[in-house]
Amino acid sequence: MLVDHFPLTELRLRTPRLELRLPDPEELAALADVAADGVHDPAYMPFRIRWSELPPAERARSVVLHHWSVLGQWTPREWRLPLTVFRDGAPVGVQLLKAVDLAITTECSTGSWLGRRYHRQGIGAEMRAAVAHLAFTHLGATDLVSSAFTDNAASLGVSTKLGYTDDGIERHEDRGRLRVIRRLRLTRQAWLERERPDVTVDGLTRCLALMGLNGSAASEDDRPQSPG
Rank of each mutant, 00 (worst) to 15 (best):
L28C: 09
H133S: 15
S112H: 11
E58Q: 15
T75I: 08
R116E: 09
L210I: 08
G212K: 04
M211F: 14
D198M: 04
L144S: 02
E170I: 12
L178D: 06
P55I: 08
R61H: 13
R59V: 05
C207D: 03
R12P: 02
T137E: 08
D151E: 12
F149S: 00
K98G: 09
V145E: 07
L210A: 09
N214C: 15
L54A: 00
A153I: 08
R61I: 12
K98F: 14
G215R: 13
L178T: 09
N152G: 12
G89A: 14
W68A: 15
M1S: 15
A130F: 05
P55V: 04
I123L: 08
L192R: 04
L13F: 08
W191N: 03
A99I: 02
L28W: 10
R17V: 07
R196P: 03
L22H: 10
G157M: 04
L11M: 10
A35N: 03
W68K: 13
T110Q: 01
L96V: 12
D33N: 06
L20R: 00
A36L: 10
A153E: 11
R171S: 13
V92I: 05
R179P: 05
R194Q: 06
A141N: 05
A129L: 00
V180F: 08
R61S: 11
A209C: 12
L18M: 06
V199K: 04
G122P: 00
I49S: 02
V145M: 10
T75S: 15
H172G: 10
A217V: 04
G157W: 02
S62Y: 09
Y118Q: 06
L208G: 00
V85M: 10
P82A: 04
R188E: 07
G89R: 15
A217E: 01
E78W: 12
A99G: 04
L162F: 00
F149E: 07
A29V: 08
R196E: 02
D202W: 06
G115R: 02
S62M: 06
V39K: 04
V3Y: 11
R177K: 01
I169Q: 14
A190N: 05
H119I: 11
T200S: 07
M127T: 01
E195M: 02
P55H: 03
F6W: 07
G228I: 05
D143L: 02
K98C: 13
S146E: 01
V85G: 03
E27S: 08
R17G: 06
P25L: 07
P7G: 00
W51H: 09
L184Q: 03
R179Q: 09
I104D: 09
H172K: 15
L20V: 08
D198W: 05
F47M: 11
T9W: 07
